[in-house]
């Protein structure tokens, strides 16, 4: 009887559609436990968990995708939806247009060029090189490009996610080592996906990125047009209005500042206040440099 039920469910799209959603929610809450760890990325956790389940049960990818395709399909509208933040940040784009466009062109060439060069160097097959080439774009766009180049979108998606994690790990130490202080410059070179990966890098960042949904940036041929720029937002701390109020109400942030006894605690309260006021948070005295 249970065997029959299993066969019946495994054949319907509902099982894997529901499964993906549930695993995603679980992975997101697991990732929240360790906000400082970019390797605990919910995308990676979900992929690993589902891939593990599929391998263990011997279900092939085609069967899984029949259910998951409904989620996959939303990549299209999601890409279109990126046009809205692009429009909202248009004035910032305009004021930094020339440096941004040149950085984008160079970034495109560098990303695609270095990837193709390195993967040729390591002797990968042409189809794999084509799948790796668009890895610095956001996954939605990269997958479209990869299939256009006769690559494998599945491999591209995985590599894009991993590039994002890698970028999130290296960007802050690198930028600090190079002593880059201009945040619009720092943000321009960080593609959108990396922001997703950055998302779990600390409570302050969580406040930021839950509210700032930007668009991707940087480095791809056709993506040059789509590029964008929430990153250029120099203060990059926009907590929207109602959240700001709710936050103030919850925290009583303004009046409680004097109650903090310890220095780090006081600083946390100040940082929160800065975030609420939409200002650049002041640097912690014991931090090496700003965080991206």
């Amino acid at each position: 009887m249970t065997d029959g039920l299993w066969v019946y469910l495994a054949a319907s799209p509902l099982l894997w559609l529901a499964g993906t959603l549930v695993v995603w929610i679980a992975a997101s809450s697991v990732a929240k436990f360790r906000p400082g760890n970019p390797f605990l990325n919910p995308i990676m956790l979900t992929i690993a968990a589902i891939a593990g389940i599929l391998c263990a049960t011997g279900i092939d990818y085609g069967t899984y995708f029949e259910g998951a395709q409904f989620i996959h399909f939303l990549l299209g509208p999601a890409t279109v939806a990126l046009g809205i933040p692009l429009y909202e940040k248009l004035s910032l784009v305009k004021s930094n247009l020339v440096p941004m466009l040149s950085a984008l062109v160079v970034g495109c060439l560098a990303a695609v060029g270095s990837t193709v060069f390195l993967s040729e160097l390591f002797g990968f097959a042409p189809a794999i090189v084509a799948s790796l080439a668009p890895k610095s774009t956001t996954a939605a766009v990269a997958m479209a490009i990869s299939s256009g180049l006769k690559g494998d979108p599945a491999l591209t998606a995985a590599v894009v996610v991993f590039t994002g994690i890698c970028g999130a790990v290296v960007v802050t130490p690198m930028m600090n080592a190079m002593r880059i202080k201009d945040f619009s410059a720092r943000r321009t070179c960080v593609p959108w996906d990396w922001h997703r990966a950055c998302l779990l890098r600390g409570s302050r960042r969580r406040i930021v990125f839950r509210n700032s949904y930007g668009t991707e940036c940087n480095s791809n041929i056709s993506c040059c047009t789509s590029v964008s720029v929430s990153q250029l937002d120099s203060e990059h701390l926009h907590v929207d209005a109602e959240r700001r109020q709710a936050h103030k109400r919850d925290q009583g942030a303004g009046c409680r500042l004097s109650q903090w006894k310890s220095e780090p605690g006081k600083h946390r309260a100040r940082t929160r206040l800065d975030a609420i006021n939409g200002q650049q948070p002041r640097r912690r005295p014991y931090r090496r440099g700003p965080v991206d």
Partner: peptide
């Protein structure tokens, strides 16, 4: 609607990413 979709953008990459099991 856009904010909702973009806030949960990560899950949209999962079906394609699971394709890694073919590799």
């Amino acid at each position: 609607t856009s904010k909702t979709i973009l806030a949960n953008l990560g899950i949209l990459f999962v079906p394609a990413g699971v394709g890694i099991i073919q590799h």
